[in-house]
């Protein structure tokens, strides 16, 4: 009879996992994201500050020309290991609109730590107009907003191997996945670029944004497309989930507490029931 619990449990877990993992079979992306090693993967994985700093540099020098990052404030950069002075100086490179002043006029001033990253375009329409009709999405949450179908059996296995890096794997694969040769059966409209890793079609309106050697890193990291894609993807994971380190650290303490508590309760339960046949 105790089997019932085990069986029901197994059935329920299978149901949960199946149902959430098996999204409708869509045709895109043509290629599944390639899994990378991330410093923040796994129950003890943490962000690598040096990597996030390189990612910030790539965003600031490159992606920010088209993409907003409006949910991130300059003060948040303290997480990346910057001091208050460094953040102040970095923010001052940006101009933000403020006002109205005493005369009722809007004005521009240098950004402070309390400001969010200013957006490259005043509105969606302007962003579209500048990008051939396609809207470059705000990147703040993109690492959590893109999670291509894992398919069976991966989605069943994922909870057991604690795989939660779908988003950064996708961004990395997209940025490194542009292909010059287009397969016969694919037609790429004028002004779009073929990328078999893109989640919502065969081709996208973003030209390949990364080229070998286009950024320089103080720590001597080689500016290969792959390295840069990885660093910026890690940075975008941080912008989407800034409290991940804290979450996992607290999680560890909670799990240890619950498991010890469970063991003690189990022993007490045995003790209490020892005198009763059941």
């Amino acid at each position: 009879m105790k089997n019932l619990v085990v069986k029901l449990g197994a059935a329920a877990i299978a149901a949960t996992v199946m149902a959430t993992g098996a999204w409708a079979a869509s045709a895109y992306p043509k290629n599944k994201p390639r899994e990378q090693d991330w410093s923040f993967a796994g129950p003890f994985g943490m962000y690598d500050q040096a990597q996030l700093q390189r990612g910030l540099k790539i965003y600031a020098e490159n992606c920010s020309a088209c993409h907003a990052l409006s949910r991130v404030n300059f003060r948040n950069l303290a997480d990346l290991g910057y001091s208050d002075e460094q953040i102040k100086a970095f923010a001052a490179n940006y101009e933000v609109e403020d006002g109205p002043d005493d005369f009722g006029d809007m004005f521009f001033r240098p950004a402070t730590a309390a400001d969010a990253f200013p957006s490259p375009f005043p509105n969606k329409e302007a962003a579209r107009a500048a990008n051939g009709g396609a809207y470059p999405p705000d990147l703040s949450l993109i690492a959590k907003a893109r999670a291509p179908i894992r398919g069976f059996p991966a989605f069943v296995i994922d909870p057991f191997r604690n795989y939660a890096e779908n988003g950064p794997d996708y961004i990395y694969s997209l940025l490194t996945g542009y292909k010059d040769e287009v397969p016969e059966d694919v037609s790429v409209p004028e002004g779009l670029w073929y990328n078999p890793y893109f989640a919502s079609g065969t081709a996208l309106a973003m030209a390949p944004p990364l080229f070998e050697g286009m950024h320089e890193f103080d720590d001597g990291t080689e500016a290969t497309v792959s390295n840069m894609a990885k660093d910026v993807a890690a940075f975008l994971m941080w912008t989407a989930e800034p409290h991940m380190d804290e979450r996992k650290q607290l999680g560890f303490r909670v799990m240890v507490f619950l498991l010890i508590f469970a063991a003690l309760l189990y022993l007490s339960k045995k003790q209490v029931w020892a005198r009763v046949e059941h």
Partner: peptide
């Protein structure tokens, strides 16, 4: 909650 909060 702590390790796979967005899986479900």
């Amino acid at each position: 909650v702590f390790y796979m909060p967005n899986f479900l």
